[in-house]
Design a protein around this nucleic acid. Structure first.
Lengths: 269, 269
DNA sequence: AAGTGGTCTAGACCACTAT
DNA sequence: TAGTGGTCTAGACCACTTT
C-alpha cells in the first residue's frame, strides 16, 4: 500500500534507513508516565524521523488513523501532533490526500524583531535620551501618513537609545496633538518605547503598520549614531492606529547596519 | 464575578460599549447550517469583539467553560477557537488564570520573504541570466562558511534575475564541488532558484540559515543592478545544509533598496 | 474549594481524493 | 468505495491559580 510509496525514492537515501518503512516507529514509543503531553511526544517522534531523513520532503506521513493505531492514541491526539508540525512549517496537510513533508521554502522564512525586544530588557545598561520634542504643523507627507489636514498641530520628537553608552537606535516621530488623548503625554515617556516592543505599553493602540528598508544614513543620522559617511543602515517605519482605526503616530527607527541582526532559519535542524 | 473585572477599565472606553459585559454575545450567534466550522465562527465573533474594543488589551476573555455554555458548543470547540486567536497573536492563555487580549507588541512582528516568492511566479516576465560559473579554490572565508578546508574545490556562480527586463536580484554563491552530489549540477539550472522560494526545489536540502543586512552596494553590484553610487541595498545571505547537516552551498542575494518591500502589520485590523 | 486552561478519549459524521 | 484529513461532542481527568 503506502509501503510502495515509501520505497519509491528510497535509493537516494538508503544510507539513512536501516529498515525503512514503519519499522522505525518501534524504536520510539509514547511514554504515558512522562510529564510531556502525548501529542508533543508523537510530534517529536515524527520530527526526528524527518530530521534523520526517514521521512523526506515530498513523502507522505502515515495517515492519522495509522498513527493512532500504531502509537495507541486517539485520532484527535494524532491530529494534534500533526497540526503542531504544520504550525512549525514542516508538513502540509491536504484533505483526502494526506500529510506531506514540506520542502525547504525560502519564501516561508520570516525575520522577527524579537532581537529588538531584547535590547530593552537589559535595563541597567539601557538609556533613552530625549533629544527634541516640539510642536510643529504637519507638512504634506506627515498629513498624508497621519490622515490629517496639512497644518494640523503635531508633536515632533527625536530620541536616542543607548546600550552601554553606545548609540544603537535613533527614533523620530510625529504625534497628533489632541489634548483629549492621553497617549500624547505618555508617548513622551521613555518607558513607552520599551513597552512598545515588550507589549507592556499603551492599550490604546489597536494595530500598526511596519515597513523596513535599507537606507543611506544622512548627516544627522550618522552623527547621532556615530557612523561615518557614506554608510548604510536600516529604517523601520511605523504607523500606529487607535480603536477607531485613526492614526495616532507616525515615525521611524534608524539602526546602524551592525546594530540590528536579522537572522532566521528555514527547514529543520 | 468577572463582571467586576470587566468594569475596572470601562471608563476609558465607554464610548465603545453600549451594554458592556456579555450582552454583546447576543448579537452574534453560531450558525450550524453554515459551511464555516463552528470554531472559526466563534473565533471570528471574539476577534470582532476585540476589534470593536469590547474586549481590550489586558482584558480576560470569558472562560472556555463560559464560552462553551454561551454558544452551545463543546469545551474542545471553544478551546479550538481560542487557540486560533492565540496563533494569530491576539490573545495569551495562562493555565489557571485565563486567556487575555494581548497588547500590540512590536517585538512580535516578523517580516516575511513571501513577496520574494511572488517575483518568481510571473514566469512570462521573469528571466535568470547566468553571468558566470567557474571552478575556484575556497579562500579562508568560504572555507569557514562551508566548513571545508581552505583550497577545497568549489564552483562559484553569479546570476541575475530580471523581471520585465529590469534587474531585480543579483545572486552570488559557492557550491562545494563533489561529483557524488547531484545538487551541484542542478544548482546551476535556473529553475532551482525559483524552486528555492516556492518549495518545488531540491529535497536534498534539510535546512538553511538566513541573514539579512543593509549594505552599501559596491561598484560591481551597482553596475549589475543599474544603481548609482553611493546607494544602499539589502543583502540576504544563505547557507544550506543537507541531511548530514553538512553545508551544501553558501551565497547571497543582493537587492536594490527599492526592489524588495518588507512590510508587515502588528495587532488587529 | 472553585475556577481556569490543558490533555485525552472513543466514537460519530462530513468533505474530499483516489481507485 | 475506501481511505484521507477535518469537525464536533460529552465527559473525564489533570495542573495550576485564586479565593
Amino acid at each position: 500500500m503506502d509501503k510502495t510509496e515509501d520505497k519509491s525514492n528510497q535509493n537516494l537515501f538508503a544510507q539513512f534507513n536501516n529498515k525503512g518503512g514503519r519499522a522505525a516507529a518501534k524504536y520510539s514509543q509514547i511514554n504515558r508516565d512522562q510529564n510531556e503531553p502525548v501529542y508533543k511526544q508523537l510530534a517529536s517522534i515524527l520530527r526526528r524521523q524527518i530530521n534523520k531523513g526517514e521521512l523526506r520532503p515530498g513523502d507522505r506521513l502515515p495517515s492519522e488513523t495509522m498513527l493512532a493505531k500504531e502509537y495507541q492514541v486517539s485520532h484527535m491526539t494524532a491530529r494534534k501532533a500533526i497540526n503542531l508540525l504544520a504550525e512549525q512549517n514542516l508538513v502540509n496537510s491536504f484533505q483526502g490526500r494526506g500529510t506531506f513533508v514540506k520542502k525547504v521554502q525560502l519564501g516561508s522564512a520570516a525575520f522577527s524583531l524579537h532581537g529588538l525586544q531584547e535590547m530593552f530588557t537589559d535595563e541597567a545598561n539601557t538609556s533613552i535620551k530625549l533629544i527634541e520634542a516640539r510642536f510643529v504643523y504637519a507638512d504634506e507627507k506627515t498629513a498624508r501618513k497621519l490622515k490629517i489636514s496639512e497644518g494640523h498641530r503635531c508633536i515632533f520628537i527625536r530620541r536616542l537609545l543607548k546600550v552601554k553608552e553606545q548609540p544603537i537606535l535613533y527614533h523620530c516621530g510625529y504625534l497628533i496633538f489632541d489634548p483629549s488623548k492621553p497617549v500624547v503625554e505618555s508617548e513622551l515617556e521613555v518607558t513607552v518605547l520599551k513597552g512598545l516592543f515588550s507589549g507592556t505599553g499603551s492599550p490604546l493602540i489597536k494595530w500598526g503598520e511596519l515597513e523596513m528598508e535599507a537606507i543611506l544614513l544622512n548627516e544627522e543620522e550618522a552623527a547621532v549614531l556615530g557612523a561615518f559617511l557614506p554608510s548604510s543602515g536600516l529604517r523601520l517605519e511605523h504607523i500606529f492606529y487607535d480603536y477607531y482605526d485613526i492614526p495616532l503616530s507616525w515615525g521611524w527607527f534608524v539602526f546602524r547596519k551592525d546594530s540590528l541582526r536579522l537572522y532566521t532559519k528555514v527547514g529543520l535542524e
